[in-house]
Each structure stands twice: as structure tokens, then as C-alpha cells.
Design a protein around this nucleic acid. Structure first.
Length: 584
RNA sequence: GCGCUUGUAGCUCAAUCGGAUAGAGCAUCGGCCUUCUAAGCCGAGGGUUGCAGGUUCGAGUCCUGCCAGGCGCGCCA
């Protein structure tokens, strides 16, 4: 409909140009928007105001001229000038109703488009360090990334979902050491567990598994293990130095092979757990990409930067001159001790992504990482790629509230709420919906009581309830003497003359647009809000008018409208990863 | 200190590339169940869009300054 109106306007402009009313060189894309206010018709264009300066005529006068030149069309019943020079279009109810047969015909495919033209886009998200269970902060990134991927796939992008497994860093060695130390405790050794080790109960589980598998083979006396290890922080030392020394000890005493067994056990168990957790949350990946697999790529990436002239040496280290591309300061990629930095891995990973043929790569990061954007963009450009091909979406943490009180979380005491706990408490549907119901880069307050409540206050239930109500209706009518006949409904759409019916049809017609906006802007909340509004319109309609009437023509027309609503609600919820129950 | 970011109704949030009288929900108050699910509906009140300038036909939206909150500024990962 928008396109139709835009075409009509362009035709009018062309004829005005031909008549000499407008300069021929004028070239503007007509903007047509759905109106917010019904008294402004169904669609409005600001074309007259935009052109008024170039055309040297006042907007209302110009609007009048455009309207006069507008070709007639059966779909448009009335055109008006309003306000400072808006042209308002009123659409015939017959043409408004056309959305219903198209929804029924398209079914679950309604709203899909080819906007993305098959562009290959990778979305990398979550990518939490595999050192423990996911917490609620990761949950928002997971929900956002998964939904963004769904939305983009729905509008025609070729999406690849990826999790970057940080299995190469120091944190992983701390994890391995923690597992081994817990194992030693189970063997009967006595010592003080390092303050910087991982203290979660899951570590004890892995240790128990290790004990079962290797029995006493990896046991060493605590005195040997702690011999020569600098004091821990509570004992007046440095916790970082302490844990690093213990890691070295573990490697020494176990040897690389056994150390690797411990390391892999911890890594594998945690990844399995994360995979299960996310799977239950409806979040899946095409690829779990290991940082360790990148080792050769890192040297090659650095070489690429050297070849491109963006690396210099200073004080024994290799520096990437990222300031060339607008970063605050230059960054080290290889330390004076020969080790490459984490950032160097990121550069290698980026190069690897483009080598795999992605046209565009999207990173979903916690908002606390925003300081890394300039250097990643710089790296992209220095590698020789257009920096527009990487996009970084920031997701803010959610603050949980229970009983009106903020739920305290601190990583230090290990008292963070896990994603699994959240899912157990409020359910997957509520968690998925709540996470994406706010703009991603916005702080959000997550009200646990609201997410659990079974009332209209809870937008998830509100939307699902609309779906369930319609399913129940359709079930009920199946028991009537005269069965529901979809074709009869479609043939009698002209009977839908109520205001609420027109509102509903117009809302339905806007679904593809809401979906596209949400996908292109990376704003799933647009779809969430749309569904809330659609459900609201349906509840209003349902309360104001009866469906199961004697007059089967009207009855089936209303039911087919309801069916269309049900379909769109189901399609939208599915993209959000929320179920659409048939009864509640 | 420098940089990024946010500031909209009592609360949580919207506002389609800069468009018309800034909208929902919650909370408050008042109505609606012998009829398809009241997990619902209808109505009322509630605003100097942090403050001050600027850009223009038009600014919550863009620019500048200030105020307030959040985050980031390692040869850490």
C-alpha cells in the first residue's frame, strides 16, 4: 500500500514536471508513512514540505497541486491536505481487508521478505568464557543475539550463528588448576584453596569425575604442590602471583599430557553445560569456534598488518598503530616476552571470519566492552577490509528486582544469579520476551515478580492469551452445527465494518514493516511492542463483539480475521523464541 | 582528567530517516462477568522530554555548552 501511494505521488510529480509547474531536475523519493492518528487518514506523505523550498512554493499550495495531479485509484477513497502541508490518504476498507487473504495464504511465511538479498552475515554472540555457568547478563546477550539472528534470517539474510570459545587464555588455566586442587582435596590432601581460584560447586563435581576416572594417579602431596609458591592474598601475598605459581606447579607435577586431561575435562564439562543451558533457552549455534584453533592465524594476521605497514616495534614489543584509524592509543599485539595478546587473537579471528566469506560480521557485546570498538574497527581497516563490514551491537546488563528489591549480585562473592536459575524461576518464554522487550543498549530493570505473574500486567501472558483465546474459539466453532468455513469467511470480509475490525486489519498489515524495522535496525523490541499492541487490539475487539453468531457469514468473516491475528501472533512469537500456547 | 553512553508521566518503557495534539503498560480512581477464557475490557486524572542556547517550515530526535547517572581508559584476559 505504501508503495502504491508512493507511485501515485511520483506519477503526479512527473506530470507536474511535464506541465512546467515543477523544475524537471527535481528528484526526491516520496516518503509515505502510516499515520499515528486516525483523523489523519491511513497514510500520509510529507512530500510537499520537503519540496517546497526547491519548488519555491509554499507547502500547502504545492500539496494542492500534487493532489490535483494525482491519478485516481480504487484503493484510495479520499486525499486531504492537513496541517503544514501533509497529504493524507484514506484507504478503502476493501483494500484494507486484502491483508487477510494474504495472511491466510502465506501462513507461517507471512511477513518474510527478501530484503537481505541473501547477504552472508555472521552473528557472534554470548561467547562467554567457559569457566562457569552463564549468568543473567549472558542471558540477555543470548536472547538478543538469537532474536536478532531470527529476525535477519526472516527478512532474507543468510545468517550464521557463532559462539567464540575463549579456550586459550589464562582464565582457562585457572579453571584447570582449580579442578585439580579440588581433586587433591577429594584425595585427602589438606590446604587452603586459592582465593583467586574458581570456587563454584560445579568445580567439585568435575574434580569428583576426575577422581573416578584417574583415581590417585594425579595425586601429589599438598606440601609438594605448595612448596615454593608465593603467599596468597589473605596470607599477605598477591593472589594473582599465587594462582599463576600454582598453575605452573600443576603443569610441572602433572606433565603436559595429564595437565591437558584436567584442562579438557573442565572445558568440556562447562561447554556441555553451557550448550545445554542455551539449548533449553532456544538458543542454538551453527558453530562453536575455538580460540585455540586460531594459533597459526595469529602470526599470519600480525604479518598482514606488518605487510600493510601498520606495525612498529618499541621496547621489545610489537605495536599496532591503531591511532591511524582513530583509536585513542596504539595497541600491543605481541608482548616483549613473545606472547601474543588477546587483541591479537581478536584480529586473527576477524581476518578468519572474512576469509570464511561473510559479507558482514556482527558482534554482540556487553556494553562494558564499548571501549574496544575503535580498536576493532581499526583492525578491520588495517587488515584491508571496509570497516562498515563489522558491526558491534552493545547489550546492557539487566538489573533483577524481586519483591521490589534489587537482587544483589557480585562476582566477587560468587553470588551471581545464573541464567538457569532465572529460567527455572520465570520460565523460558518470559525470560526470552523480557530480555528483548527493551532497547538492547538501554539499561533494563527485570522485574522477576512481573515475569512470573499470570495477569495482563505480564506482556508475555497477555500476548499468549490472545493466541490461546483464538485457538479456543476455533475449537468451539468446530462443535457448532454449521462448521466454520474459511472460504465463506474470506468471501464475506466486506461485512467487517466495525471500527475495531478495521483497526485490527490495519495493524495486521503493518506486521511486515515492524519485522523489517526490527531486523534492519537490530531492535527486536520493535517486534515485541508490535505484538503487545496487536494482542491489545484483539482483546478490545473480542470484548466488544461476539464471534459465534447465528449469522454464519458474519461469524466466519470474524473468525477468519481472528485466524489471521492468530497467525501473525504465532509468527512474531516464534521469531522471539516464545511459545504460542493453544490454551491457557 | 579524557572518551563512549543514557536522561521522556509517580514507576517500567515507546515514539517508524527530523513530522501533525509526545504514546502504552503498571500504580491511583471509577465502571463491566446468568452470554465465545475477567490471564480480559471501558473510562478518568497524570508531562516545561535533565537545563540553556542553536540549526529549520517543523526538534524528544541533529549541533554546542552545562548538570546528573552508567561504563571504559594495562606489554590483563
Amino acid at each position: 500500500m505504501k508503495e502504491l501511494i508512493a507511485n501515485l505521488i511520483h506519477t503526479a510529480l512527473d506530470s507536474l514536471k511535464a506541465a512546467g509547474t515543477l523544475p524537471v531536475e527535481l528528484d526526491v523519493q516520496a516518503q509515505v508513512d502510516a499515520t499515528r492518528d486516525k483523523t489523519h487518514g491511513d497514510f500520509a506523505s510529507n512530500i510537499a514540505m520537503v519540496l517546497s523550498k526547491q519548488a519555491r512554493r509554499n507547502p500547502r499550495e504545492l500539496a494542492q497541486a500534487i493532489i490535483a495531479a494525482l491519478p485516481a485509484d480504487a484503493a484510495i477513497t479520499k486525499v486531504e491536505i492537513a496541517g503544514p502541508g501533509f497529504i493524507n490518504f484514506f484507504v478503502s476498507s476493501a483494500s484494507t481487508a486484502e491483508v487477510i487473504p494474504s495472511i491466510i495464504a502465506a501462513g507461517s511465511a507471512f511477513g518474510l521478505s527478501q530484503l537481505g538479498k541473501g547477504e552472508k552475515v555472521q552473528v557472534e554472540f554470548v561467547s562467554a568464557n567457559p569457566t562457569g555457568p552463564l549468568h543473567v547478563g549472558h542471558g540477555r546477550g543470548a536472547a538478543y543475539g538469537a532474536t536478532l539472528s531470527n529476525l535477519m534470517a526472516a527478512v532474507g539474510y543468510d545468517i550464521q550463528r557463532e559462539y567464540y570459545v575463549n579456550d586459550a587464555g589464562r582464565q582457562m588455566n585457572i579453571l584447570a588448576a582449580s579442578v585439580w586442587l579440588r581433586y587433591l582435596e577429594l584425595c585427602g590432601e589438606e590446604f587452603t584453596f586459592p582465593s583467586n581460584g574458581y570456587k563454584g560447586d560445579y568445580i567439585r563435581d568435575y574434580a569428583a569425575e576426575l577422581l573416578q576416572r584417574v583415581e590417585q594417579a594425579y595425586r601429589h602431596p599438598a606440601t609438594t604442590v605448595f612448596d615454593g609458591v608465593p603467599a596468597d592474598e589473605p596470607a599477605g601475598g598477591d593472589k594473582e602471583i599465587h594462582i599463576d605459581a600454582l598453575i605452573d606447579k600443576a603443569r610441572d607435577l602433572l606433565g603436559e599430557d595429564a595437565y591437558e586431561v584436567v584442562f579438557q575435562l573442565g572445558l568440556t564439562r562447562i561447554l556441555d553445560d553451557i550448550r545445554d543451558d542455551l539449548g533449553e533457552f532456544g538458543v542454538t549455534f551453527n558453530e562453536w569456534f575455538s580460540e585455540r584453533s586460531l594459533t597459526e592465524n595469529v602470526e599470519r594476521a600480525i604479518q598482514t598488518l606488518i605487510d600493510n605497514g601498520h606495525i612498529y616495534e618499541q621496547e621489545g614489543a610489537l605495536w599496532f598503530r591503531s591511532t591511524t584509524f582513530g583509536d585513542d592509543k596504539d595497541r600491543v599485539v605481541k608482548r616483549d616476552n613473545g606472547q601474543t595478546t588477546y587483541f591479537a587473537s581478536d584480529i586473527a579471528y576477524l581476518q578468519n571470519k572474512f576469509e570464511r566469506g561473510f559479507d558482514r560480521v556482527i558482534y554482540v557485546w556487553g556494553a562494558d566492552h564499548h571501549g574496544y570498538i575503535p580498536r576493532m574497527k581499526a583492525a578491520c581497516e588495517a587488515l584491508g577490509f571496509d570497516p562498515e563490514r563489522i558491526q558491534i551491537r552493545l547489550v546492557q546488563f539487566a538489573i533483577l528486582y524481586r519483591g521490589g528489591e534489587r537482587v544483589q549480585m557480585s562476582t566477587r562473592s560468587g553470588s551471581f544469579v545464573t541464567l538457569r536459575e532465572l529460567r527455572d524461576e520465570v520460565g523460558n518464554d518470559a525470560a526470552r520476551f523480557f530480555y528483548v522487550s527493551r532497547k538492547a543498549e538501554q539499561h533494563m530493570d527485570f522485574d522477576l515478580d512481573l515475569a512470573k505473574s499470570e495477569s495482563k500486567d505480564n506482556p508475555v501472558y497477555y500476548i499468549q492469551y490472545a493466541h490461546a483465546r483464538i485457538c479456543t474459539l476455533l475449537q468451539k466453532v468446530a462443535a457448532e452445527e454449521t462448521a466454520f468455513d474459511q472460504a465463506r469467511g474470506l468471501n464475506n470480509l466486506s461485512l467487517l465494518e466495525q471500527e475495531a475490525e478495521k483497526d485490527l486489519m490495519q495493524k495486521l498489515a503493518r506486521y511486515p514493516e515492524a519485522l523489517e524495522n526490527a531486523a534492519v535496525n537490530g531492535d527486536p523490541h520493535i517486534l515485541a511492542h508490535y505484538l503487545r499492541e496487536l494482542a491489545g487490539d484483539f482483546h478490545t475487539y473480542y470484548n466488544a463483539h461476539r464471534m459465534l453468531l447465528e449469522d454464519v457469514n458474519l461469524r466466519d468473516a470474524r473468525l477468519v480475521l481472528s485466524q489471521a491475528v492468530r497467525q501473525v501472533v504465532a509468527n512474531g512469537l516464534s521469531l522471539l523464541g516464545v511459545s504460542a500456547p493453544e490454551s491457557m
